[in-house]
Structure formats: C-alpha cells, structure tokens
Design a protein around this nucleic acid. Structure first.
Length: 943
RNA sequence: GCGGGGGUUGCCGAGCCAGGUCAAAGGCGACAGACUCAAGAUCUGUUCCCGUAGGGGUUCGCCGGUUCGAAUCCGGCCCUCCGCACCA
C-alpha cells in the first residue's frame, strides 16, 4: 500500500469538501484549542506531538457526535523575529546558515532560497513565510483544523481585539504603571532576558534587593548595602576597599558616597543621579561615620573582601553575626603594619568589640563560633561564604533580636526583617539598591546590571478579588492530568504584577501610550474568542477601524444594542448578529490542550483574563497537557542538530505512523522519546494492521458463529466499549493499546484456533466499528478502508456506533481462559518433570466440590468453612475441610463451567498445542492423581 | 530558594489514587523452534532464582511503621526530572 498517496488523497478530499469547517447550530458543540505557534522557524516533531494530540481529541469528539471547532492562528508578537531579521541584515553567518536550512526544508531551488533569505531582513516576511508553511505542514499532518478562521497577531484586526481586551482590563483597575527592576545591559541600552545572558540558561541570574543604609558622613551619607538590615543594631565599623575608587554622587538633593561601579548602576536605578567627583578608597579610611540608629560614630576601616562591584561597594560591619566582618576585624587587629599603612590607631582598632544583637541557641558569639569551628583564619578564606550561609540560615529561622534592638527586641528575624527595612526607610536612612545575584555578562560580553524602569506598565494580578475568581474557575475546570489543578491554584496565588508592555517588538501598541508594545504573552490570553468571529470579519470585509469597543462589547459581552453598534460602526446588523451568535454558540472554549511549560504563564493568564472579562458561563472548560518530546534520549534542539521537521514526517515515516506513535508511545503526562527502533517496530505493527484490514475487504461475513467467533466478538466489543471510556477520560494511549496491540493479539489467538479464512470473515464483521474507533489516530488509513468498503461519507465525520453489548459474553471468555490454563499447567509439568509425554490424562473435580464451591463463592475466608459445612453435600467433613482450605489457598475465582464438556470440545486444540494425545476423566489413574483435582483446576497425569 | 513530578523485573514502560486475584500488562532486546536455499518479515514458546508433577523462594530507590496481608497506605532518608515573570 502506498500510504503517502492515501494521505494526500484524503487530505485533498477533506479540503475540497470543507469537512472541518463547522457552522453554528448543528447540535451539541465542542470548541477545542491548541495555542498557536510562534513563527520564527519551521515546526518540528516536538511541536507535532501537542498538535497531534489536539487533533486526536478533536476527531474523537466528532466521533462522539459533537460539532467540533478546532481553529488555528499564528503568533508573531514579540522580539525574536526582530532579532533574527537584524542578524540576517548584519550578515550573521550562524543565523544565515540556520535560516538557509529552514528554507531548504520547503524550497528545492537554491536561487529561490537566497531570494527568500534576503527578504528576511523584514521581520514580517519571516513570520509570514513560516506561517504559510506551517499551514502546509498542518494540512500534511491530517489535522482537522478550520482554516477559515486563521489570523496572525500582528494583523490590524487582531490589534483592535487586543486593544479591546486591555480596555476591559483597565476598567477593572488592573492595568497600572510603576517602577520595576529588570536585568539590563547599559552598553546595549536594552533589557536582557535569560536568553541574552551568557550561561543564563544553566546559571540563572536573579535580582537581589539590597537595603542601602545611609551613614552620616561629612556633607552627606556613606551608603552601605546589606541583605540583613536587622543587623544594623550591631554595627561596629564600616568597610571600604582601599584599592577601590569611590564617588560623591548627587541623588536628587542628597549626597551619597558609594563606589564608582555602584554610581554607574545607580544612574539606571534612580532618577536625578549625577556623579560629582571620585577619590581613592583610602581617602575615607580612618575617618568616622554616624550610624543611623543612635548616631554613634563608627570608624571606616580597610577590607579587601569588599567588592566595589557588588551593591554600593560600602559594607557595614557586624562582627558578632557576620563571619566576614569578624574575620576581617581579627585580621586587622593582628596586622600592625597594615594599620600603620593607613595611619590607623592601634588602640582604636583593638577597642572594637563585636556587639551581639541576636540570641540564638547553640551560639555564644555566632560569627566567632563558626570561624573557630571551621578553622577559618583569614578573610580571604573561600569557606567564609559557606560560614555566612550557615549563620544566615540559622539566625533567620531561629534567631531572636535582643534588648539592644529597641522596639524590635524579642522578635524572630524572619518576622522582623521587612519591618526593619521599612522603619529605616521611614527615617529617611534606608533605600533600595538592586544587584544581580551573580556577576553576569550578555552573550556579547557586555556587563549586566539591574536597572529600574520608571514607568513600566503592569497587569496587577495581586488583587484579591481577581485571585478568588481565578481559583473559582480552576475549581470548576477539567484538568488532565488532574495534578495540574493543584499546581494552577499555586500559580494563581503566586501571580503578582507582571510587566505587560515593552519598547520593542511586533504586536499591538499600548492604547494609552503608543510608544509601548503590548508584550507577547499578555496579548494572547482570550484570543480564542476571536476565532469565533475572525472569518466573519474577513469575509465581510470589515475594516480595522470598524472594530470598535462598542462592537466587541456587543459581540463578546452582549452590551449595547444591535442598532446602536451597527450605526456606530457601519457594519450591517445581520453581520453583527452573526458574530454574536457565533460567539455565543461556540463559547466557552471547552478544552485547551498544550504543554506543561505554559502552566505558569500563558495558561494562568488565560484563566485569569477570562475571569476578569467574561461572565462565568464563558470561562474555560478545561486544560489538558502533554509532556515534551525528546529524540533518542536527547532534547530536540537546533544546536544539537537532531530536529526532524514536521514537513519531513510524511516522506520519512508516514503521517498515520507518526500520529500512532504520538498516541501510544507514552502517556500524555510523560516525556515521549522518539526512538527510531521503536518507530520501526511500530511500523511493522501498523503495516500488519493494514494487511489484516485489506485481507478482509472482500471477505464475506460469517454465516454462523461458533464459540471461537463468539469469543472474538466478545473480546472486541468489550475492548471497544472500554476504549471509548478511555478516550473520554483522555487515556488515549490505553485506548489505542487496547484496540490495536491487545486486540491484534486476540486476533492472533483466534486465528490459531479458527484459521486464517475465518479470521478474514470475522474481521469483516467488525471492520466498520474497528475503523471508527481507530480513526482519530490514523485518519488516512481508516478513511481509505472506509471508502473501499463502499461508504460514501467521510469516516472522519461519522459517529461512533454504540458498543454491541449483546456480543459481550464473559462466560465464553472464561471458558477459553480455562482451556489456556489447563494447557499451561500441562506445559509446566512437562518442563519441570522433563517428560516426553505419550499420553496425558485429565481428571476434573467431582460434583460435590462444585456444590461446595458454589456455596462459598461469595464468602469471606472467615465464613467459608461454615458455609461449606452447611452446603449439605454427602461427604465426610474432613474431606470438605481439606477441600475448602485448598480452595482458599488457590484463590480460584468462581465461574459456572461444565469442565468435562469444555475439555471434550477443545480436545483437539489441547492435543495440538501439547503434541500428545489426551484422555478426559478416564478410569485409568495409576498415581491417584484424580484426588488432586479442584474445580477449574483439573488434575493431570502424564505418561 | 519556591512549587510540582518521578525512582518498578536486561532496557522502555504500565500498575499504584480505590491494599490481597502481582513475579507484576504491553513493547523492545535476547534465546529456542516453525517457515525459507538464505536473510528479512511472520508465527510459536521462553526470558528473577531454585525445582524430575502444576510447587517454593527472593523482588518493585533505602530505612522504619500500619495491616491477617503492601510495588500499592503512613513517616523519615537518598537520588533524579521539570516549571518559576517580562522569555516565546
């Protein structure tokens, strides 16, 4: 069979017939979405898993009789394609090579490749080209998508929709403006994300908030930074790096003294910062500054451990609780020459004693204790970092501020930290200084600092009413796997304010400030609603400017009147009515299927924005998720060179085979490994299926049914019925394993007993039902056979037949199981006893045993003996007791069965399997085996 | 750090949520046999250990607990994977 030809044929026929373009109002509906892909390149098999599962769900829902809408669009919002276009314009060889490779997936003419590549200097061209190719890819995968509704997120009509969304959010009071710290590259003049930072993916850079504490000094403040503001009560001195350079900085109307590096950073963190002059660190050493709490004069001392490029470059010393401070002070006290170098009075330095301000069990003077314990003897010992961590943790969780801390005395550190911070700020002596969690540079080697955006726009998710709505929605939704429900509750709790606009990128301009572009995740939260009307907007030639707030209010929220809206927009009443009815028919989005990576951003926003904007009946119905796809154990990535484009699936593997692999290779929730060896063995299985189906095409059905037929039909319809339930419960893998692997094993078993010819007939008997249950996963093959059977309709649009319960016959299945058990027992005996049989005798249990068995069939082990004795059989009590004990031990499940009859019937089969003659219940019993027989477990004697 | 998973017999991977019928599905691999000139495909059987009669023994990350009984429930420990805000 030419699978490729079959694929193409049916894809074309579906398209020509507009098979998957559903209209409003045909019975119960199901609206399924999968997030649109970002179009910066071609799609590969990793993406393919999610879309394929989505399509399988859509197709199964059609089988169940739903009117299914499965739309798709393209995401082009954001900066990546801009960066790519820039790189191409600048002749970046790596990017050129990458995109040349992408183009060669689709283009065979090298001249055309170069031509297209040159066009990619325009970001829109990249997005448009790959979006167009993605449609081809999706079509070639047999996805049942309604393409009439496609759009991309840079289109004016979509921009209007996003603007509307933001207006709605603004009305709810969740769009806000404020300051926000971000990682930033001063050289590039841009914010930097994880992707822009060298090793950012493996070694994350986070933003640390230091408390800057102002120590009175000359005409201003010497500003020390700390992560432990509560230790201010224990300050004994300040540390300055004598090798560093420090500057006098005007911060609005204040004067700060901080390191040169810190001054540079501060310019990006505060407004009104200017540097007056800089001097060497030595300039300050030996002088005094006033600590802010009591105004004590504390000396400024030299320390090499101070990093001028970390926070303000000024450190205040708390030798009682900070190991670095303790050790630096000890070092200094011992080094007379060093003190002399800086003209420090030895007496003054030696007088400095740690001030203990935190009481904690197990420590006398924490910093000293730990340095002694670890054997640290100088301030350059790298283990000081570890010591600091230990003390910090211990004090944070179990330390209590003591009487030296004024109003904060007696309170645990973890409860008081933030209050001390606020207290200092309110006194005008505390401020915030942001620093990166580690030294970082961009991929181009430019320094990364923390900058504070002064006028950042946010969506404020922190509001209580909103979170409550979010939780309520999550509670009502379907989640599969179920564990993600709890996770989503957690994410909603954690959501805070999120910047929603940036200065660069493609997308929608921010309605209240056109310099800003709405950020790419914030513009993709409720767009499923747009699918319901996109084709009407396009089909009726509605201009972007006609898409007013009033129009969308009417269509999506039912606010206003048709007449008013029609008058305002100039859109005919019937068109607006159509839009409104499309929306109300299709909404809510019943199921959204994607990957778990989207949980904490997109999916959370998806839920939250729906709850803020739409009434409850239009909130999302459910979220289903599938894990990542990897290849031969490795992550799929361009850099690894192990990418298989979706466009190559058809020729390299076959689409149905790929879809089948997606369905059965692993559960939805687990990582799926694309392994060539597994694919190959699945291919054999798939081709075997095709052969079996093909062989039955022209076969007659069975005129009369024997017990083997009844057995097979029973197995089939039981599996069929189970699989429908599995599909409903999103257990796609189990459903398919059942209908394919397990049922094909049944067929093999059947063929062994009933023969090949009969198999062909019985397959013909169940073929329509079999094809239907398989069609969501392997639509092309099933469509082909469906039509070869003479059907005119598309199987893709057929409805499942109800399982034929009348065929499900547990008795017949048990009988076969019984026979198999007998065969297996004989085999085991032959093997263990190493016998070459000449003849085998089988003895079934006597009638009285069956009577007792029947009496105790539902009994608990406790009651069994009593019931057995009361069963009224005329056998000696000891016999009965012995029998009951054996039965309890063997744990034989009760079924009614005439053993002798079944064995007689299957005699030929057993003899063939064993390769020896058998005799049932013969008088001959030389080894007295007959007495070992139990119901359903006959005694066996081999000669 | 915060949050969420997972550790099962050669490998992959079910089962564990609703404890017993679990030596534990299915696939792959391996071995033996049938078919074939041969190979491949297909089919049959075996694949934790012991066993000359259908039996017994030891397993489901480690330690302990609950129970008549635990891969399955509870507690602790070790290891591992994933997500974490301006990035689509």
């Amino acid at each position: 069979m030419d699978f490729k030809e079959i694929e193409k044929k049916w894809q074309k026929r579906w398209q020509e017939a507009h098979a998957f373009e559903p209209d409003v109002g045909r019975g119960k509906k199901f609206f399924l979405t999968v997030p649109y892909p970002y179009m910066s390149g071609s799609l590969h098999i990793g993406h393919g898993r999610t879309f394929t599962i989505g399509d399988i769900i859509a197709r199964f829902k059609r089988l169940e009789g739903y009117n299914v809408l499965f739309p798709m669009a393209f995401h082009v919002t954001g900066t990546p394609v801009l960066a790519i276009a820039d790189a191409i314009r600048n002749g970046d060889e790596k990017v050129l090579t990458l995109y040349r490779d992408y183009l060669r997936i689709y283009e065979s003419d090298e001249k055309r490749v170069e031509e297209l590549l040159r066009s990619f200097v325009e970001p829109e061209n990249i997005a448009n080209y790959f979006a167009e190719k993605a449609i081809e890819d999706f079509l070639s995968m047999g996805y049942s998508i309604d393409w009439r509704r496609k759009f991309n997120t840079a289109e004016p009509i979509y921009n209007r929709f996003v603007e509307w969304q933001f207006k709605k959010l603004y009305e709810k009071g969740v769009i806000k403006k404020g300051k926000y710290p971000i990682t930033f590259s001063p050289v590039d003049g841009n914010p930097v994300g994880e992707d822009d930072i060298a090793d950012g993916d493996t070694d994350k850079v986070s933003i640390m908030e230091f408390t800057a504490i102002k120590f009175g000094y000359e005409d201003g403040y010497l500003v020390a930074a700390t992560l432990r503001p509560e230790t201010i009560f224990g300050v004994t001195n300040l540390w300055i790096n004598p090798e560093g350079e420090y500057c006098k900085v005007h911060v609005n109307d204040e004067i700060w003294y901080i390191s040169r590096e810190a001054a540079e950073k501060l310019k990006y963190q505060k407004e009104g910062v200017s540097v007056e002059k800089c001097v060497p660190g030595t300039y300050f050493i030996g002088k005094f500054a006033k600590e802010p709490v009591h105004g004590r004069e504390v000396p400024i001392l030299p320390a090499e451990f101070v990093d001028v490029d970390n926070a303000t470059g000024v450190v205040y010393s708390v030798p009682a609780h900070a190991p670095y401070d303790y050790q630096a002070l000890e070092d200094l006290k011992k080094d007379a020459a060093y003190m002399k170098k800086f003209n420090l009075s030895e007496e003054m330095v030696k007088k400095i004693e740690p001030i203990k301000i935190i009481d904690i069990k197990g420590y006398d003077m924490p910093a000293r204790d730990i340095c002694k314990k670890m054997g640290i003897t100088n301030q350059n010992d790298p283990r000081l970092e570890e010591a600091t961590q230990v003390i910090y943790k211990d004090e944070f969780y179990s330390g209590v501020l003591n009487e030296k801390c004024g109003e904060f005395a007696g309170i645990k550190i973890k409860e008081i930290k933030d209050e001390v911070k606020t207290w200092l700020k309110n006194m005008g002596r505390g401020d915030v200084f942001y620093e990166t969690s580690r030294k970082a540079v961009t991929r181009n080697g430019h320094k990364v600092i923390v900058a504070v955006l002064q006028e950042q726009w946010f969506i404020d998710y922190s509001q209580k009413w909103w979170k409550e709505l979010g939780h309520k929605a999550v509670e009502r939704m379907l989640f599969y796997p179920e564990k993600y429900r709890e996770m989503m509750h957690g994410i909603i709790d954690w959501l805070n304010r999120r910047p929603c606009a940036r200065k660069r990128g493609l997308g929608t301009r921010f309605p209240w400030n056109k310099e800003w572009i709405i950020e790419s995740l914030s513009d993709s939260t409720i767009y499923m609603a747009f699918y319901t009307v996109a084709h009407i907007i396009r089909g009726s030639n509605i201009k972007p400017e006609q898409l007013t707030e009033a129009l969308f209010d009417y269509v999506f929220l039912g606010i206003g009147t048709l007449e008013e809206v029609s008058e305002e927009t100039g859109i005919p009443i019937d068109v607006i009515e159509k839009m409104r009815s499309e929306f109300t028919y299709w909404y809510p989005n019943d199921q959204r299927h994607t990957a778990p990576a989207h949980m904490s951003n997109h999916l959370a926003f998806f839920i939250m924005h729906h709850t803020a904007i739409f009434p409850e009946e239009h909130w999302p119905g459910g979220i289903t998720l599938n894990g990542l796809m990897i290849r031969e154990g490795a992550k799929i990535s361009k850099s690894k060179g192990n990418v298989i484009p979706l466009a190559h699936i058809s020729s390299r593997y076959g689409v149905d085979l790929f879809r089948l692999y997606c369905a059965v290779a692993s559960d939805l929730d687990t990582v799926m490994d694309w392994k060539e060896s597994e694919v190959a063995s699945l291919r054999r299985r798939f081709e075997r299926l095709a052969t079996i189906l093909e062989e039955s095409l022209n076969s007659e059905t069975l005129a009369e049914k024997n017990h083997y037929d009844r057995w097979l039909l029973s197995r089939f319809y039981r599996r069929y019925s189970e699989s429908i339930e599995m599909f409903r419960g999103m257990r796609i893998r189990d459903a398919m394993l059942n209908m394919l692997f397990h049922f094909m094993n049944d067929l093999r078993y059947y063929e062994k007993h009933a023969g090949e010819e009969r198999r062909k007939k019985i397959v013909r008997e169940i073929m329509e039902d079999w094809l239907k249950i398989l069609t969501p996963v392997i639509p092309h093959l099933t469509e082909e056979f469906w039509h070869r059977l003479g059907h005119e309709s598309f199987i893709s649009l057929e409805t499942l037949s109800p399982p034929r319960e009348e065929y499900i016959d547990l008795q017949i299945e048990r009988e076969m199981e019984y026979v198999d058990n007998v065969i297996e027992d004989i085999r085991e005996i032959l093997e263990v006893a190493r016998l070459q049989p000449t003849k085998i005798y089988i003895y079934t249990a006597p009638d009285w045993m069956w009577k007792v068995f029947d009496a105790i069939k539902n009994a608990t082990p406790k009651d069994a003996m009593r019931l057995a004795m009361q069963s009224g059989v005329d056998v000696n009590k000891g016999e009965i007791a012995k029998f009951v004990k054996r039965m309890l031990k063997e744990k034989i499940q009760y079924i009614t069965l005439n053993e002798q009859k079944v064995l007689e019937r299957e005699k030929d089969v057993i003899e063939r399997e064993i390769g020896a003659k058998i005799e049932i219940n013969a008088e001959y019993d030389p080894k007295h085996k007959r007495s070992l027989a139990l119901p359903l477990k006959p005694a066996i004697y081999v000669e």
